[in-house]
Design a protein around this nucleic acid. Structure first.
Length: 421
RNA sequence: GUGGGUAUAGCUCAACUGGUGAGAGCACCGGUCUGUGGAACCGGGGGCUGUGGGUUCAAGUCCCACUAUCCACCCCA
């Protein structure tokens, strides 16, 4: 028997409405905030991601990208995240010519060859929002508000917003020097991984979870205390805006980024119900990326949400299983007796033309079988069609919850159903 | 990549310390009931016990490897 690839999953028929619902809410919020959907390929040149995501990122270093040569010997990769592709799209299509500020969102599968775990897959779905061409702190706030709105709409309750500022290319070097110097003094106390991080990306030592490292980190100089004037003002404005909008947040001075392109504001939404993979949404400002990928100097900010994790949080938070979002067909047509296929077809066609979700089981001729099938599907109504109905030119409509039923001409039945829909 | 748990029917689980043809409930299909379902009863299809080796007279049961899965680390959404 064939099995699905490690780290992938199937969405079954009774679960898909759940994901559709989440997707619809995201679409809706995107529209409310004036974001337009973009679509870009799942495969791109590998170097787009190598450069976009950063050479020191584990996605590149630990070979977590699905990279291969295509038939033309091009080195291509399955996208490990969305921002690089979105920015490539922005640059290649000169979107700034349509308006400097672009509010964009996307949704789709991403790929990382990591070991699967709770809420972590090799093919996972990400929703991302990108606000390109706006350097103001309000842009960051808007993105956080979008998150906030989504959380609210999906009925998620146990979330915490963490924010931090990781400075810019002006103030980070000085800070990093200070940090590196400090960590260098305590090198012996750090774990093996952190000792290598020290030379590669010392910031990452800050969120190491090993107790020995944390002891060192606790005394370490913190970025948000060493921001340059502009970065500091930016961060203050973000915090003040959030406060005045009554969006509660916590400052996490150890919040850093695995992806290299971030600067200034970074934020994460975490849920306690998620186990170790507590972050279901993360984002921040990335003012250098457009330039790094060959575009003009363009500020930008964005975030991405993991659909699978989001789904788990929704279930945990609302107490509703994903199967409870299933929408049954509205009317089940039961053809009772032989040679009824024409009548059944006609009924189905009329119902569908009226916008009702309607179905049947062609293989059944016994009413009993039909009702059982309708029951299993969860349809609220069954339309009974047999000799009697055909003779009278009427339909019998049965309410499957109450058992009540009546006979009427099709037009009346349709009117009745329209009122119930 | 590292560490630990798990692996028997579609699902949830049985099968005394290794011992006759691997069972139950749910689900599915059919019947009791040829125009009234969600109940009951009866019957049926489904498993080379994750895969491959080994120990043994004998393995679902013990040993090894592999694979998958779950959890944690790493990292990340």
């Amino acid at each position: 028997m064939y099995q699905k690839l490690k780290g992938t999953y199937d969405v079954l028929p009774h679960e898909s409405d759940f994901f559709r619902w989440i997707g619809n809410e995201i679409d809706h919020v995107a529209r409310l905030y004036g974001y337009k959907e973009i679509q870009f390929p799942i495969i791109e040149y590998a170097n787009l991601f190598q450069r976009g995501v950063g050479e020191s990122s584990d996605i590149v270093v630990k070979k977590e990208m699905y990279v291969f040569e295509d038939r033309g010997n091009r080195l291509v990769a399955l996208r490990p995240e969305g921002t690089a592709g979105a920015v490539r799209l922005y640059i290649e299509n000169t979107l700034h010519m349509y308006g400097y500020t672009q509010r964009l969102f996307y949704a789709g599968p991403m790929f990382r060859a990591e070991n699967p775990q709770a809420g972590r897959y090799r093919q996972f779905t990400q929703f991302g929002f990108e606000l390109i061409g706006d350097a103001s702190p309000e842009a960051d706030v808007e993105l956080i508000l979008i998150n906030h709105e989504l959380v609210k709409r999906l009925g998620i309750t146990d979330v915490t917003l963490y924010i931090n500022s990781i400075g810019c290319r002006e103030c980070r070097p000085a800070y990093q020097q200070k940090l590196t110097a400090y960590l260098g003094e305590h090198k012996q106390e750090l774990c093996e991984d952190c000792q290598t991080r020290l030379s590669l990306n010392p910031l990452r030592v800050l969120d190491c979870k090993k107790t020995s490292c944390q002891a060192v980190v606790r005394q370490a100089p913190l970025q948000y205390q060493h921001l340059c004037e502009p970065c500091s003002t930016h961060f203050e404005t973000v915090k003040n805006s959030l406060s005045s909008l009554e969006v509660t947040f916590l400052i996490d001075p150890y919040l850093v980024r695995g992806l290299d392109y971030y600067n200034r504001t970074v934020f994460e939404f975490k849920s306690a119900s998620l186990g170790a993979q507590s972050t279901f949404s993360a984002g921040g400002r990335y003012d250098y990326l457009v330039r790094d990928l060959g575009g003009m100097d363009t500020p930008a900010s964005g975030f991405a949400m993991g659909m699978e994790r989001l789904a788990m949080v929704v279930e945990a938070s609302t107490g509703k299983k994903r199967t409870q979002y299933y929408h049954p067909p509205f009317v089940y047509v039961a053809g009772v007796g032989e040679n009824l296929s024409l009548a059944v077809w006609q009924a189905l066609r009329l119902l569908r033309e009226e916008g009702f979700s309607a179905t049947t089981e062609f293989r059944y001729t016994q009413l009993k079988k039909h009702l059982k099938a309708a029951d299993r599907l969860g349809a609220p109504y069954a339309l009974l069609l047999g000799e009697d109905e055909i003779q009278k030119g009427k339909w019998t409509l049965r309410n499957l919850q109450t058992g009540e039923q009546f006979q009427e001409i099709p037009a009346e039945i349709v009117a009745f159903l329209r009122a119930k829909k």
